[in-house]
Structures are given as C-alpha cells and as structure tokens.
Amino acid sequence: MSLSSQKGNMNSIEVKNLTKKFGSFTAVDGISFNVKEGEIFGFLGANGAGKSTAIRILCGIIEPTSGDAIVGGYSVMNEPDKVKLNIGYMSQKFSLYNDLTVEENINFFGGVYGLIKNKLEDRKKWVLKVAYLEGKEKLLTKDLPGGIKQRLALAIAVIHEPKIVFLDEPTGGVDPISRRNFWELINELSHKGITVFVTTHYLDEAEYCNSITLINAGKIIASGTSKELKTKYLTNTMLEVECDRVVEALDIFSKQDWVEETSIFGNYIHISVEDENSARSLAEKTLKENNIKIIRMDKIVPTLEDVFIYLLEKDTKKNVK
C-alpha cells in the first residue's frame, strides 16, 4: 500500500468544534477543519488570532476546553502522548541547541524519540544530507549560517519520520534564497507523504500551500486553495493605476466614496472598486481635475495579500458591530 495512493483520500488531521478558553477569553472559538494526508496546509492569521493556541492543542501540549482533534489517528484529548510520538514540530524560535555540535543535536533529539544504533545512524546520514552538512557534524550549531540551521532544524524535527510535521513560522529572519530552498525541502517532505501544517506571515509562501485556512479572532473566516480564495471571496474588481505623483494620487483616491480600498505597490496604486467601467471613468476624471496624468490603468487578479486584507477588515468590522 503506497502512500501516494492514499493521498487526497484520507484525512491526516480532523478538527471538530475545537474551543480553548483562557478564563473569559476565548482564544480558539469552535473551529473545524480537515487536513488531507500529504498536503501542505497553510494556517494563516494575524498575531493573536489564535494560531499558536490551535497549534499547541494539535501538538498535544495543551488540552482543549471542548471539542477534539484527531491528529495522525490519535485524539489530542485522550491520547496526547501518542500524538506527540507521531508528529514533528519546529517553532519560529530556533529550536536546536546552539552550544551543541550538529551531531550532538541529532543524537539528543534522535534519543528523545527512541532511535537507537542502526536506525539512528541511518537517520543521521539523512539529516546531514538534507542540511548539506555531510562531513561537518562536529561543527557547533551556533556557527552555522541561518539557512542551514533552518534546514537542520526541520530535518531534526522529522528525524523520527512522523506522518505530520507542524512548522510555526519556520522562515522568520531567513534570506529569500534560503527561504526558497527551504520550501523546496518542505515540498519534498510532502511528496514523501508527510503532512505539513505550516503557519507563516509571508503571503508569497502561502502560495506554495495546497490549502489555506485563514483564522481571525479565534474563528475560521476563509479556506480553500489560493485560487479559490482569490476568486470566491473577493467580488470587487482590482484596478492597478500607474500615474504621476503617486502619493498625491493615493491620497485623492482614498477620499473617494466609490473606492473601497487603496494600497500602494511600488510605483502603482491598487484600488478596489465595485463596478469596473464606472470606476475607470471616475478615476480618469478625478485625476484630471488634479492635473495628474494617468499612464496606465489595468484590471488585475488580486494577490493573496489583497484578499487577506479585505477579509480581515471585513471580519473585524463585523466583530466591532
């Protein structure tokens, strides 16, 4: 029975009505979702949205107040120890010991998961290869470059070959090239059938995910593939305007009642409008009155960032009401 045949059929994580309250504060408010086996699942949200709490519950660190989650076949409520054995975890903080050598780190974490002798040696070789550290196992971890450290941390997080790995903002503070390499490694893991549950602040990274879920104020406000999110949730049209005196133009646009959102992308302005045709003529008219010359104005596919800003603001307004 190969893993790939199951891919897309079985759920690796099933979250049912999960709630966590800290006193009167509800950090996670009855969320439900499924993560398919072998997929890269992006879990996105602002700081304090409930992301970390949700991850901590799924990793068996804290008990939910109500609801349950089945992670790798085990209930986080009833069998948190079994959950811990079957997952890997890598946090935004660097999670290895800086004052140990590469090999000592591998030995320690391998030992924690009960790997011994041959098995440990096999996995050590694999970790070293993945982290580009073959022959460098005696180096102190603190002397490694950032990108390599990150790869080492991920490889060690899956040293015991778990079916699921949780990555909590794994690429914070890493240069773009290392980030790209890192995501290639994540893809590799996913191809091997490992489910990758990842949170990130970088929305370009979210594009790599097979499935994205957006959480705000403890509740899920959107989910789907990147494409679905861009088309399903954002009904407005996005216009990209290239013109003179960009800053002034942005200021003018933001005062117009027919413009819902404005944002600036380099030398261009993005405006979100309900009706494309009327907006085009209104924009031309308004800028002309202010002696600003329009060079170009195009309808564009919104970026994930556009979608998220829109969704978060809509949800926040609703919550305030």
Binding site: I61, S95, V112
Partner: peptide
C-alpha cells in the same frame, strides 16, 4: 529563553 524548552515539550519526553 532560547526556545528549546518549547521544543522539548512537543517531544514525548514526560
């Protein structure tokens, strides 16, 4: 401080 405690908590270490 350095975050390794968090890492240890997610392992099967009791």
């Amino acid at each position: 401080e350095i975050g390794t405690l968090e890492q240890l908590i997610v392992t099967p270490i009791k």
